[in-house]
Each structure stands twice: as structure tokens, then as C-alpha cells.
Design a protein around this nucleic acid. Structure first.
Lengths: 110, 110
DNA sequence: TTTGGATGCATAAGAATATTATGTATGTTT
DNA sequence: AAACATACATAATATTCTTATGCATCCAAA
């Protein structure tokens, strides 16, 4: 995993679920890979504990579903969790903007 | 501190030192506050251990200087550390771009 | 046909990184 | 005199991720 991802991972997961409605773990890893052109690869050891934690906090709910012989665990954001998700996503957006401010500081127009 | 900052903090410090040449710890915290309009406040408990670690890795060197009665510890990037700094800054830029891709996914033009 | 790779979930030990609290000290403002 | 800003530092704790491992199914290649 990209070391800079640390701290932002759970919010990225919330963002994907917020956009896509319903996803399972492996699907989330593939979606992030696709969106970032293989730049960000979420490890399973990071992913699953986050999903379990968000479920325990009742931000997410899960349903098992068997597809083509394999069991998938689909997650979605709960109504209660929606406010949390929206907040964190807004914070992540602000952080991304702050990163841009730091990485591309405006030239002083003297 | 913004929770999303976790993992990016050391690279942000390297970026500021790379841009500004020579800074002391407290100055770094103030510069980040200024650039981000008070959005990001670096805590001292996070800052100083990072500076010490980068110094131990010989990415930074430090010089004590007494100014107006107070001792400042000025840091700068070593020639050897420059390559590390440039790499990490490039990775952080790539991460910021990836964040934008995730946060603002392109609409599918069907 | 069996081996490897992709799909799919899970957890545990350890490392890395930050929080929170605390301590010391000087200068400036109220 | 007290409060606040400047300036550095560290320790205990918490959070978050890595690395390794385990289990199981499906599909393709050898």
C-alpha cells in the first residue's frame, strides 16, 4: 500500500460505498485499483478490519450472498451511518485540497 | 490533527523544507497552518519525533541557533537526503491525484 | 489432472505513526 | 502577575497498517 494512504483508507471505502450503494470487500479493492490505474492496492489485512470496525460502529451493514459458488459479503451504508460518511468524505476532500495547497504553493505576486 | 494527514505528515515536512531550504520545527507548524488556512494543525508530539527520525536517517541535518533569547533548531535536507525527499514528494503528488480520481470519479460518457 | 492464479473472506503478531499529556524555558501582552 | 505565544522534548497509549498465514471456490493452463 502507498504509505500516504494511511489514515485515508476508511474514508475512501466510505466514498466508494456512498457512490456505488453496495459493494463487497474484494470489489472495493478492484475498484480502487481501477480508479487509480493500479497505483493503490488495498491489502486485505487493512481492508477487512476496517469493514468490521465500521460494521461494529453501525456505519455499515453487511449481507452474505452466494454468487457462482463463492460467498461475498456485501456492505452498504446505514441511514444512521450516512451522516458520518458524508462528514468524513467532506473532510477528505478538504484534506485533498490542503495537499494541493502545500504541494503547489501559490507564487507570491510581489 | 486531521486524521487523514496520518502517513503524509513526514512528506509534507520534507516538501516544506525542500521549498524553503531551512526551517525550524515551530516554523513548520505555523507554515502548514498558514498554507491550509488553519485547517491543518501539526501537533508537537507528531512533529518532533518525525524530525528526529529524519535526522537519524541522515535525510535532514540540524543546527541550533539562538534568536531573541530562544533556541531554535533549524533543519535542512542533506544532499544525500535530497533524493529521498524528491521521491516522497512525487509519491505524495501521485497520491493527491489518486485522491482526486476517487473523490471526483469521471462520469461515464455512455 | 493437478497446479497456479484469481476470487473471496478472515485473523494474529508486529511495526509504524499519531494522540494526549506532561515538562522545561523564554518573551510578550494584558 | 497571569496568560499566551514561542520553542523544544519525551513517554504512555491508541490507532492504523504490514506481513504472514489460513481456509475455500472457480477457472485456465500444463
Amino acid at each position: 500500500m502507498n504509505q500516504h494512504l494511511k489514515g485515508s483508507l476508511s474514508t475512501i471505502i466510505l466514498k466508494l460505498l456512498h457512490d456505488n450503494g453496495r459493494m463487497y470487500g474484494y470489489e472495493i479493492t478492484q475498484k480502487v485499483k481501477e480508479l487509480t490505474q493500479d497505483d493503490i492496492q488495498i491489502t486485505e489485512g487493512a481492508l477487512y478490519p476496517i469493514l468490521h470496525k465500521l460494521e461494529a460502529e453501525e456505519v455499515l451493514t453487511a449481507e452474505l450472498e452466494k454468487v457462482d459458488g463463492r460467498t461475498r459479503k456485501y456492505y452498504k451504508i446505514t441511514p444512521k451511518g450516512n451522516a458520518v460518511a458524508v462528514d468524513r468524505i467532506a473532510e477528505l476532500k478538504a484534506f485533498a485540497e490542503n495537499l494541493n495547497l502545500i504541494l503547489n504553493p501559490k507564487l507570491s505576486l510581489s
